[in-house]
Amino acid sequence: MKMSRRADIDAALHDARVAAYLPGQFVGQESFMTADAVLALARNAGIDADTRVLDVCCGIGGPGRLVVRTFGCTYSGVDADAEAVALARELATGLPCTYSVGSVPPLPAGTFDVVLLLETVLAFHDKRALAAAVAAALDPGGRFACTLEAGMPLTPAESAVMPAAETVWPVPLAEFTKTLADVGLSTVSIQDDTATQLQVVTALLAQFTAHRDRIAAALGTSFTDGLLESHRLWRDWMSSGRIRKFALVARRMTKP
């Protein structure tokens, strides 16, 4: 059976990703978060066995599987990439996970105790529309747990060198928390994870560079060059303070 492009990418990058993370910290994530960081955010959001979790932009679902295995929560993932969702379903065989394909916003129907959004807030240009959709999906007291790439918007020069710049929309932390408050989400926890994520992206860049020829043979030179360039930029931006990475939990208030 022919593998999907998303499965091809996961397979081609797997060995480099495993080598980049400290033992036990790689759980199939496609980001710079460690397993410990995922679990810390989940605990801050109050996830337990009775929690209904919606994982937005779940991708192939590595962090979600970790959360389900650890806490035994009720879990649903949604992503716009049908190939990613298909692979997530395959990888979650035997776990109580459900997945759907859909663009966000809107979020899937129903209400949830926790909405997760890991490493993809930057992909949403309209942060207010995103926040409003999240608030509508949470019962009063429900939590929004996300990671934020905090910084000023990209300059034209930065956009010109960032691969897929149309999906890179950083925002200052204070502006984002105000946007959340405007739709009834009160920020209750903020953790600066920049230092840890900088270590991860630096290690990933080193491993992707070491595995460059094999990755290029599997996925093409253009993909590989873009992968390396994006990781160089994230490394440089985090090391210089241009971008900071935060893990944030906000609670749905009874009234906005």
Rank of each mutant, 00 (worst) to 15 (best):
G46V: 04
D126F: 06
V53S: 09
P96Y: 05
A49D: 13
G62H: 11
I60A: 08
G46W: 05
F124C: 02
A42S: 04
P108F: 15
L95G: 07
P108K: 15
E119H: 05
A109G: 14
A109R: 12
A42E: 04
Y99A: 02
L117M: 11
L54R: 02
R89T: 08
E90P: 01
A49H: 14
V121P: 13
F124Q: 00
T70H: 11
D81P: 00
F112Y: 15
F71Q: 12
R69M: 03
L118Y: 14
V53N: 10
D79K: 02
A123Q: 01
L39Q: 03
H125R: 15
Y75D: 07
A42P: 01
F124Y: 14
E90F: 08
V56N: 12
G46L: 05
A88G: 11
V53L: 12
P106G: 00
T98R: 15
A86C: 13
E90M: 09
G110L: 07
D48K: 09
V56C: 03
T70Y: 00
G110P: 07
Y75G: 06
A49K: 12
E30L: 10
G46T: 08
T70A: 06
T111N: 10
V38F: 15
G77M: 09
L116E: 04
E83N: 03
V68R: 13
S31V: 05
I60H: 13
L66I: 11
R89P: 01
I47P: 01
A109I: 03
F124T: 02
L118R: 09
T98Y: 09
L117K: 01
F71K: 13
L66V: 08
V56A: 10
E90S: 11
A37E: 15
I47F: 08
D55N: 11
S100L: 14
A37M: 14
T120K: 09
A84S: 15
C73F: 13
L122R: 06
C57E: 01
V85P: 05
P105Q: 04
D81Y: 10
C97G: 07
E90L: 07
G72C: 07
E119M: 05
L118I: 14
A84D: 06
V67E: 04
T93A: 13
A40R: 07
Y99N: 00
D48E: 10
D126Y: 12
M33P: 05
A49N: 11
L39N: 04
T111W: 07
K127I: 13
Y99S: 04
G77F: 12
S31N: 07
V85Q: 13
S100D: 14
A82K: 11
S76M: 05
T120V: 11
L39H: 01
G102W: 00
G102Y: 10
S31K: 02
A123P: 00
T74V: 09
L41N: 04
L39D: 06
D55V: 06
P63E: 03
A109W: 09
R69I: 01
